[in-house]
Amino acid sequence: MLEIKNLHASIDNTKILNGLDLSVNAGEVHAIMGPNGSGKSTLASVIAGREDYDVTDGEINFQGNELSDIGPDERAREGIFLAFQYPVEIPGVSTTNFMKTAVNQIRESKGEKPLDAVEFLKLMKEKMKLVNIKQELLSRSINEGFSGGEKKRNEIFQMAMLNPKLSILDETDSGLDIDALKIVSKGVNALKSKENATVVVTHYQRLLEYIVPDFVHVLMDGKIVKSGDKNLALELEEKGYDWIKVKN
């Protein structure tokens, strides 16, 4: 589904990714772990198409399409979803209105008929249950005045609404207490299927107790230095990232 080869990316002439390779297939959960500043969030943003980053070399293929010339809006329509580490507050736009625009633009791009108000409300109600989010919150300005937990639940709610093929969760556990973490993980697990894939970016092993990965990759200095199964995460938790540095 996702095939990244020799990816180099920089921002303001600072190199962040240095030849990264990653392959993700449908039905899989991948965890990307690594210390602060290793390039985890950059990788997430580059896959989603953030224009502030320059891809200087390498390629990202998604379902056979090279993504380099495709904007973030079209990537989302192809089925890529990024759950933000720091969801943006947007005064004056309600989440409901935002989601209605997004869902219908994605539908139209696939040649499907847009949802009318009743159909949309039905879909929304169903997905709200999944992450335990109240309609009152969704009729407010996007993320404005939301607590940390509410912001992350709103991200997973949006993910549920858009039903992506590839979900990238960027530090979704940061700022969450244990109850919120459970709700968010439950939502992510409920959305998992054989047709879609999940990439979880985190620097703690904690989240992986709830969202169990098939593969764990360690990212350091802009490339993946070690891959393994879920036991690698446990080993990392025990020995720290220095263990890998020393080994290399």
Binding site: A48, E51, D73, A76, V88, F98, T101, Q105
Partner: peptide, 17 residues
């Protein structure tokens, strides 16, 4: 970027903002 990352075109995202 946040709006566009949900599939909203650049033009419509600007109008919304």
């Amino acid at each position: 970027f946040y709006l566009m990352s949900r599939g909203i075109s650049r033009k419509d995202a600007i109008s919304l903002l």
